[in-house]
């Protein structure tokens, strides 16, 4: 009979389903400014690549605006095309 109270060394990481929401809808942000790197960095990973929607949870309409703004910022050398450990 398996021991009833089997305790694990580390708590089992049950996948807590955090409700993902689109921050643009929530905070009523309508315009993504391509000149503001701090805000855009939240949508980039360490290498400077744009994060997919399934991780950031943004809706399609605003993901396109973010992508366009990031590409404009890259054109103006405000954001790098590729880098390592940018954050």
């Amino acid at each position: 009979m398996a021991d009833k109270n089997v305790r694990y060394l580390t708590p089992v990481a049950v996948d807590t389903k955090k409700e993902k929401y689109c921050r643009f809808k929530k905070h009523r942000i309508k315009y993504v400014d391509y000149k503001d790197p701090e805000f855009l960095k939240q949508f980039l990973n360490e290498q400077g690549k744009i994060l997919p929607r399934r991780l950031t949870g943004t809706s399609l309409k605003y993901q396109r605006k973010v992508a366009k703004a990031v590409k404009r910022a890259r054109h103006l050398a405000i954001l790098p095309y590729v880098t390592d450990l940018m954050k």
């Binding site: 309508k30 315009y31 400014d33 391509y34 404009r72 054109h75 103006l76 050398a77």
Partner: peptide, 15 residues
């Protein structure tokens, strides 16, 4: 060495 012209839509103007 680099330039970018951007046509502002109504949200950009408001911003």
């Amino acid at each position: 060495i680099r330039f970018l012209t951007f046509k502002m839509d109504k949200y950009a103007v408001e911003y």
